[in-house]
Simulated assay, not measured.
Amino acid sequence: MLLVVGIAGAILCVVAAGIIGVLLHSRAGLVAQLGDARARIAQLESDLDAALRPPPPTNSAERAVRRVIRTASKVRSHGIAGLIQSTVEDLQSWASDDERADILNMAASDGTVTLFFSDIEDSTPLNDRLGDATWVRVLAAHDRVLRTQIERYRGQVVKTAGDGFMVAFRDAEAACRAALGIQRDLPREVTLRRYGPILVRIGIHTGQVVARDGDYFGRNVAMAARVANLAHGGEILASDAVREALDDDAALTLVERDAVELKGLAGEHVVWEIHPPA
């Protein structure tokens, strides 16, 4: 009897080992088949992409059509986009041939954008007085305040440099309200109260600009930067173009300053102080 049990047990072990071997072999086969299937799918996708990719344009008319199609595709994906060129003559270059050009989603329907420049007044002496370690904490607190208001009013940070911000807004009122929120919240921030006062100057201008590689260029960028340079810490200054772009019901207080000359820009320019509603 014991002999029979032992033989049966041996047979079961052999059968179990065989089943495990078959399963392992099957699993390895399935993994290999899955890998082959993925490779075939990738090849099919590559072939389909190659088949659908149009040949290079051979003349200026075809290039123009391609620009229109590419721009329409971006508008479908991202909404009304782009920062149109600073002159009507440049309008045909809105969708640049450079595939790296980032047509940002900040333009109004007429192609204008509001630019906001800010920096900390006397930042170099502050850095020297506080030391680098503390200055880094101050900058982090400053950045949090700015980014919170920028995000709240749906602005887009174009670039930063140290304590300086360049931001695009879809409309002038959003830029002004973000600026007012920043000036209100900076003195409330715990770190900035401890090491402050940290005074920020802000300049705002509305106009058409050139968009390239996710950055902005042109006369109106220079105008916004020059307006910011006129401001003192705690002030918000705006160009006359901002005042014109604001709706009558914007409920903001604007105080006119004397006309000034701006470096590199011809003529005299009116600037306005932006204050909360009275």
Score class of each variant (00 low, 15 high):
68 V>E: 10
53 R>H: 02
128 D>T: 13
149 Q>Y: 08
109 S>F: 10
67 R>N: 05
179 A>I: 03
30 L>R: 13
155 G>L: 07
199 L>A: 12
200 V>A: 14
153 Y>F: 12
73 S>I: 13
156 Q>W: 05
127 N>D: 11
211 A>H: 01
77 S>L: 12
233 G>W: 00
45 E>W: 02
66 R>V: 12
8 A>I: 15
125 P>L: 07
213 D>V: 03
155 G>P: 02
102 D>Q: 11
70 R>I: 12
160 T>Q: 07
22 V>F: 09
4 V>F: 13
108 A>D: 14
54 P>T: 07
102 D>A: 08
237 L>K: 08
67 R>V: 01
93 S>T: 12
257 R>N: 01
77 S>N: 12
212 R>C: 04
87 T>A: 11
113 V>N: 03
197 P>S: 11
205 H>R: 12
159 K>T: 09
251 A>C: 07
40 R>C: 06
164 G>Q: 04
252 L>D: 03
212 R>G: 00
175 A>R: 01
101 A>G: 13
261 E>N: 08
71 T>K: 06
37 A>Q: 12
79 G>Q: 14
225 A>H: 07
223 M>Q: 07
210 V>F: 00
52 L>P: 04
107 A>M: 01
46 S>E: 12
59 N>V: 08
226 R>K: 14
198 I>L: 08
9 G>Q: 05
148 T>I: 03
125 P>D: 03
